[in-house]
Design a protein around this nucleic acid. Structure first.
Lengths: 188, 188
DNA sequence: CCCTTCGCTCAACGTACGTTGACTCAACGA
DNA sequence: TCGTTGAGTCAACGTACGTTGAGCGAAGGG
């Protein structure tokens, strides 16, 4: 009852964050199409109209909700790259950032989300290929990226028991030789 | 004008096939949610009500549309398995069967489709793991499956240029060491 | 103290969807 | 030939969606 009422600006920011949190959760759980503005608003405890007022459209809401942690692999050599990539399995598998998960889930049905996902993946391929020698570096980098993507989808979206039952390190151990092979034709 | 009108039964079957073809294409292109009965009917050149009359509901229509070629890997040893799996890249990459593609695209958003996809993948993991020695055979099989899944998604759904620009054999060549490594700890 | 600002709600709109029931009409069997 | 069947259409239903504009009420500045 005697709650410390925050000033307007902070109240506004807090509400906006509630909406974004709800949106991320729902986009991640059921994808773009099945997420409704009304459901987001209900989960955030506000009126649907407010969501529109803040973000303009469902598309824009998704754009804001999908903004999330950019991966930081740069200036590594091939072996470090593999280790770093496998290290991200921890995050990917333990708890994928809600923004990424939302994008991952939505990218296969929603056109704009798909474009955004493709772009993000292309950037990752750029960074990866920079650390790989050879003229087929981009192909190899792309394969590394989709391998990680497949594992993430199998784990997070399809929730395969086989993958969920073991620690990330075990998966990393099994995946390492294949990724190593992708970084270059040279043997060890 | 002097067209040979087929008997009722055949005409019926033909129409049904037209509807299923249209449904498969649309489910594959835009996923379950964004595919409308009306659009399917329009593409098949019939009335939306007829689609309902034949299949009862959109869910059932999807079920029928998603029924497609079951993969036949059985009774192979580990090395043959890898070769067979990589051989399927041809089909997966060249032209994924419309039923599978529909399921692949829809599985991440639509609950029932997701369950069906999970089941299909589980069956594949069963078959794969039968050809792999060791007590972590199922984990290894699951990883092989999701690696192939990732490549297929990258190629078919995300349409990565890097993957589309090269022949399947090239991709198979790069993937082989990793899959070999997954079939067992023994070195060659 | 009043007037403005602004976070927020309310009620409604137009639209598109899945689905239904009554209907039309050509093919069919007796 | 005539009644029956069944493929296919038509018009409509209820519902849920994204989105809008008017309005409320408390906070903030003069």
């Amino acid at each position: 009852m005697s709650e410390r009422l925050p000033p307007r600006a902070e109240r506004r920011r807090r509400t906006e964050r509630h909406i974004l949190d709800a949106a991320r959760t729902l986009f991640a759980e059921v994808g773009f199409e099945r997420t409704t503005i009304r459901a987001v608003a209900r989960a955030a405890g506000v009126d649907p109209a407010l969501v529109m007022q803040y973000f303009g459209s469902k598309q824009e809401l998704f754009r804001h909700a999908a903004e999330a942690a950019p991966p930081p692999e740069e200036g590594l050599d091939a072996d470090e790259l593999v280790d770093h990539l496998l290290g991200t399995l921890d995050t990917k598998i333990g708890e994928l950032s809600p923004g990424s998960l939302a994008m991952l889930r939505s990218m296969l049905t929603h056109p704009e989300a798909g474009a955004a996902a493709r772009e993000a993946l292309a950037r990752q391929i750029d960074r990866l290929s920079a650390a790989i020698p050879g003229d087929d570096a981009r192909l190899r980098a792309a394969l590394m990226a989709v391998v990680m993507l497949g594992v993430t989808i199998g784990h997070q979206l399809l929730e395969l028991e086989e993958l969920r039952a073991v620690p990330p390190e075990e998966i990393a151990r099994l995946l390492r030789p294949g990724l190593r092979a992708l970084t270059g034709p040279e043997v060890s």
